[in-house]
Amino acid sequence: MPRTPSSLRRAALPLSACLLLAGCSAAGDDASGTSPRSGTSAAPGAGREAGTAESRTPAGSRSPAAVPVRVAVPSLGIDSELMRLGLNEDGTVEVPPAEKGMTAGWYTGGATPGEPGAAVIIGHNDTRFGKAVFHDLRKIAKGADIAVRNDRGAELHFKVTGTETVSKKAFPTRKVYGATSARTLRLITCDGAFDAQGHPVDNLIVYANRS
């Protein structure tokens, strides 16, 4: 995975490993979603490329979970391949590089879409190259369909239950990344006004459940 610019790597990692993040950009290609750092690091291996669904498969299971490879929101005309996103060396969440603004990414430290837990997909709103994959995400409606295809050819569908715009300084980490037995999906990008440095100050979070 290519290293992202330092301006993108600001998402904090609480001890609980419930991450916050953002995927967006404007003039500065900032995709950060900030919160107070706990001063601790993630659990060992949480950010390794191997820290995917395969490494989390319980011993004795027949096969590893399928890997998501594409996401689509038909009502908005969104259709994107999925790259894998982990953690940077400093414990912050990776985001897609600005030059791949039209490609969303699946955070491998969360759940696999369709499995119990919160699966998280991150995408830019804008980059210095122009509009990005989640530019129109704010237009998504409650009840809209989100389709995720995996590497086994299966297409999983999720229904939007709501959206939320939050300050990056008050990101609802546990609500987004916290443990749940439900099969949920979150799409995250940046939103809102810009600060003095030209960085969006908010995150847009789309919540969806398996339909």
Rank of each mutant, 00 (worst) to 15 (best):
N125I: 05
A50W: 00
G109A: 14
A31W: 00
S32Q: 12
V67A: 12
V120H: 10
A31T: 14
E54W: 09
G153K: 09
A66I: 03
G101P: 01
F171D: 04
E99R: 13
T127C: 00
D145M: 14
A98C: 00
I140V: 15
D90I: 11
D29C: 07
T161G: 13
K168L: 04
C190F: 07
L76H: 10
E81Y: 10
E115M: 07
S167K: 07
D29H: 08
I78D: 05
T112L: 00
T52R: 12
V95H: 06
A27E: 10
K131M: 08
A144C: 07
G77F: 04
T184S: 15
P58E: 09
A72P: 06
S63N: 07
G130M: 01
L82F: 11
S16R: 04
T40A: 08
H124F: 00
E54R: 12
N203W: 08
S55F: 10
R10S: 11
T4L: 08
R62C: 06
G101N: 00
I188N: 04
E94Y: 00
C18S: 03
A170C: 02
V148T: 08
N209V: 14
E94H: 05
V93P: 03
E155W: 04
G105P: 03
E89P: 00
H199M: 14
S61C: 11
L185C: 09
F171S: 06
D195S: 08
A22T: 13
R210V: 07
A179C: 07
L20S: 06
A179Y: 11
P200T: 09
I188R: 01
E54N: 10
G77I: 04
G47I: 02
G192A: 12
Y207R: 14
Y207F: 14
A144S: 15
L13F: 05
P36M: 03
P44K: 13
V176Y: 07
G51R: 04
K169C: 03
D29V: 01
A193V: 11
T161I: 12
R56Q: 11
Y107C: 02
G192N: 10
Y177Q: 14
P5T: 10
G39N: 09
S16Y: 00
A196V: 11
A119N: 02
R3P: 10
I188Q: 05
